[in-house]
């Protein structure tokens, strides 16, 4: 990034290392990216760096605590929320390649600490600086050009937590619109849940599977080359159902992979 280019939008065509950075971002990788699709973590780093940020990955991070919170285990959720706050509160921004985990930090930590004013204040401070990846790229970084390239048609699945807790709707589409090779084909009911729902997907496999099937039918009706989304849970559910129903060709990609390319 050129040092003179300190006004947004950011030019990303220059591959030389940044001489000056716009700030430091801590990446909350998320447990599912860590375990299942590490490439998405690296894609997120590429995107943030291309926007001119120095990216730090706190090494001891594990999980935001959402599995405990949604399962009714408040002590476990609380312990992990405290751990995450301690690890991330020193940074100017925390970016998460997941609407669900970002939603946990932004919207639910305050409930986790409803009865503890000291932790509540720390949680609230962190919540205000925590962003879902595409929301950060559009509304904070004001990224105008993305490093990736993609040739083909894409249909976008709006993940529930990102959409309804954080208002992530236009951000990924705006970023995809900057990519000349991408043709966006919206599916019917793109805001409908894919059926993942965390442990719901295991406890109520038949219902979860039926919802995934409905989502896959919507995806198939567009004839798009790829379904793109912003959350790993939905990604695994949709990919798992697409393959089971015999679709070997529709790609299932995280938005970071498409935007960053090369991953």
């Amino acid at each position: 990034m050129r040092s003179t280019d300190n006004a947004a939008p950011v030019d990303t065509t220059d591959d030389t290392p940044a001489l000056s950075v716009r700030g430091r971002v801590a990446l909350m990788v998320t447990c599912l990216v860590d375990l299942m699709r590490p490439g998405i973590g690296f894609a997120a780093i590429r995107l943030l760096e291309s926007a001119g940020y120095e990216v730090v990955v706190p090494a001891a991070q594990t999980c935001c605590g959402q599995p405990g919170w949604n399962s009714g285990d408040r002590p476990a959720a609380r312990a992990l929320a405290q751990k995450l706050i301690t690890e991330f509160e020193a940074y100017e921004h925390v970016v998460v390649p997941s609407g669900s985990c970002a939603g946990m930090i932004r919207m639910h930590y305050r409930d986790v600490f409803a009865d503890d004013s000291a932790w509540l204040a720390r949680a609230a401070a962190l919540a205000g600086r925590t962003h879902e990846l595409t929301d950060f790229l559009v509304n904070v970084a004001r990224l105008a050009r993305v490093p990736g390239s993609f040739q083909g048609s894409i249909t976008y699945h709006d993940s529930c937590a990102g959409l309804r807790e954080l208002g992530v709707k236009t951000q990924p589409r705006a970023l995809l619109a900057t990519m000349p090779g991408v043709e966006l084909k919206e599916m019917p009911d793109c805001e409908e849940c894919c059926g993942f729902g965390g442990t719901f997907s295991v406890k109520f496999g038949e219902i979860s599977g039926a919802l995934a099937e409905a989502k896959c039918a919507s995806i198939a009706s567009t004839g798009a080359n790829a379904v793109v989304l912003g959350d790993l849970g939905c990604m695994l559910s949709i990919e798992g159902r697409l393959r089971r129903r015999g679709d070997e060709t529709t790609q299932v990609l995280h938005i970071a992979q498409v935007l960053a390319g090369g991953g």
Binding site: A18, V29, R37, P38, F42, A59, G205, S208, G240
Partner: peptide, 29 residues
């Protein structure tokens, strides 16, 4: 329950934290 109607996509074999620790130091990605 998961695999009643779906496959479970397998992980890639190494975690992000392993790969990140093993990345060439001091370079941008």
């Amino acid at each position: 329950g998961w695999t009643l109607m779906r496959d479970m996509p397998a992980p890639e074999g190494r975690t992000f934290r392993e790969l990140y620790a093993a990345r060439p130091q001091g370079t941008r990605l």
